[in-house]
Every structure is written in C-alpha cells, then in structure tokens.
Simulated scan of single mutants.
Amino acid sequence: MLEVASAVPAVVDIFLDRAAGIPEIADRAAALVADFGASDTALPDVLFGRAAAAGRLPFELPCSMASVAAGREDVPNDSGDPPFPYGHGIRLG
C-alpha cells in the first residue's frame, strides 16, 4: 500500500477500533480517512460527494509506538506531539 501511495495519489481508509501509529501512511496518502465501521456503500458515497461526512477522533493517533510506550498508561492522550490529536476531525458536505 505504501508503494502504491508513493507512486500515485491514493485515498487510504483505515478502520480504527483502537488508536494506531500511522505516520508513514499519513505522509504518503493524498487523503486519509478514519473509519469506525462505515459500510461498503457509505464510504464511496462520502468520497464521491454523494453524502456529507463529519467526525472527530475519540482518541489521539500517536506519532510512533515509542511515544506510546513512553506515555503513562493511566493518562489518556499523553503520547507527546501526536500528528492527529484527540478531537481532530473534519466536516464535509
């Protein structure tokens, strides 16, 4: 996937059932979509402008697993300087 995203503009949809460190994907993707269980028909509808979308992250996405390991396990959203902080989001439509 990283090879394709480096060669052509790519929209990357990532299903997030928990926080993930995805800096390599975020750096190479033309667009990055966080999916929390969208149907196979809903995502294309949003991507092609047939439906509006809105959302905010319920947790931060850290820059690396090392930053997660350095954080305190009893304190949410303390991974340092996350590329996508808690509450990051967008509204389309």
Rank of each mutant, 00 (worst) to 15 (best):
R72K: 11
E73I: 09
D40K: 11
A19V: 05
D13N: 14
P44S: 13
F84T: 00
D81N: 02
A53Y: 13
P76T: 02
D13W: 08
I90S: 10
E24Q: 12
E24T: 03
M1P: 12
V11H: 12
D13G: 14
R50G: 07
V11S: 12
A69W: 04
Y86D: 06
P62Q: 08
A34T: 09
V11W: 08
L2I: 15
A19G: 15
D27M: 11
A52M: 12
G21K: 08
I25M: 11
G89K: 06
L16F: 14
D17A: 15
A66S: 06
A34Q: 05
A38D: 13
A20N: 11
R56C: 10
P83Y: 04
G55S: 13
R50P: 05
L57K: 02
P58A: 11
V75E: 10
V12G: 06
P9S: 09
S67V: 02
E60C: 09
D78F: 02
R56N: 10
A69I: 02
A70D: 05
A70G: 07
P44W: 12
E73G: 13
L57V: 07
T41L: 13
V46Q: 07
D13P: 00
D40S: 09
G93Y: 03
A69R: 07
L47V: 13
P83C: 02
S64L: 04
A66R: 08
S64D: 07
F15Q: 14
A53D: 05
G49C: 08
E60R: 05
C63I: 12
G49I: 08
P62K: 00
A31Y: 08
P62D: 03
G93M: 11
D45N: 12
A29W: 05
G71W: 00
A51V: 01
A7V: 08
G71E: 01
V4F: 02
L32W: 09
A53F: 13
D35R: 04
R18Y: 15
E3T: 11
G89W: 10
V75H: 03
A7G: 10
A69T: 01
G37A: 10
D74A: 04
A34D: 03
L61H: 05
R72A: 07
A20R: 13
V33C: 12
V68Q: 01
A69S: 04
A34L: 14
L43M: 15
P76Q: 04
E24K: 13
H88G: 06
P82G: 01
S64K: 00
G55K: 07
A51H: 10
F36T: 01
A70L: 08
G21Y: 14
A38M: 10
L57H: 08
A70W: 00
E73S: 14
S39E: 09
S64N: 02
D27I: 00
G71S: 15
P85E: 01
I22G: 06
G87E: 10
G80L: 00
A54Y: 12
S79Q: 01
D17L: 14
E73N: 02
P62L: 04
G49S: 11
L57T: 08
G93L: 03
R91N: 06
G21H: 15
E24W: 06
A42E: 15
V12W: 07
S67I: 00
D17M: 09
I14E: 15
R50H: 09
G80M: 04
V46N: 05
A26V: 11
G80Y: 01
I90F: 05
L16C: 14
M1N: 03
A31P: 00
L92A: 09
G93E: 05
